[in-house]
Amino acid sequence: MALFLVITKPMIATEGRAAGTCTDRARRYAELPPQAFAFTKRELRSRPLERIAAARVGRAEPRLAAWLGEETKRAAAAAVRRTVLQA
């Protein structure tokens, strides 16, 4: 994650300088050894992509229980009572 932040943080727009910063950074990355860059990019993305793949087949989706649990059902029911039923 730290390497990801080092690579991406300077690309975040700040006071209209984003385009120049991104272009300069892209030029420097283009000068890197392509295989090493691709390997590092794959490594940085591999864990999140594994988690996404697992979630798609129904395993290890941490948000599912949170969004479909009792707490959410109670909050949704309360919101309906406050808005729809009182209108």
Rank of each mutant, 00 (worst) to 15 (best):
L64C: 12
I7T: 02
F39E: 13
T40M: 14
P33H: 06
T23K: 07
A66W: 12
A60N: 14
R59G: 08
L3V: 04
A55V: 08
A13G: 09
R45N: 03
A30N: 05
L44E: 03
E50L: 01
F4E: 15
F39A: 07
R47G: 02
L3S: 03
G16M: 00
A54T: 02
G69I: 01
E71Q: 09
K73D: 15
L85R: 12
A55Q: 08
A65F: 09
R45G: 01
A76T: 10
A36T: 09
T21G: 03
A26E: 04
V57A: 03
K73S: 15
C22M: 05
E61L: 02
T72H: 03
T21E: 09
R45K: 00
E70P: 06
P34F: 00
Q86Y: 05
Q35G: 08
P10A: 05
T8S: 04
F37S: 09
T14N: 11
R51V: 07
T83N: 08
I52N: 01
M1E: 10
A76Y: 15
I7M: 08
M11G: 05
R81A: 15
A76W: 14
T21Q: 05
F39M: 02
A75G: 07
A2V: 13
R59H: 05
A53R: 00
R47I: 02
P62M: 00
T83I: 09
A19N: 07
R81T: 15
A38G: 11
A77C: 06
A78P: 04
E71R: 07
R42K: 03
F37C: 08
P34V: 06
L85M: 08
F39R: 00
F4G: 08
V57L: 06
R45Q: 03
A55T: 04
L49F: 14
G58Y: 01
F4D: 13
R82E: 15
R63C: 10
T72F: 09
F39Y: 02
F4H: 12
T72G: 05
G58P: 02
A65V: 06
G69V: 05
V57T: 11
R63P: 00
T72S: 12
K9E: 14
A13Q: 05
L5N: 09
Q35V: 09
V84A: 12
L49G: 03
Q86S: 15
A19T: 12
A65I: 04
G20R: 03
D24R: 04
L85N: 11
V57M: 04
F37Q: 09
L5G: 13
A19F: 09
P62Q: 03
P62R: 00
A60C: 10
R63H: 11
F37I: 07
R81P: 11
K9R: 14
K9M: 14
L68M: 13
I52K: 01
V84D: 08
V6W: 07
A65T: 06
T83L: 11
E61T: 01
F39G: 02
A65Q: 06
T83E: 06
R59C: 03
G20N: 11
A36I: 02
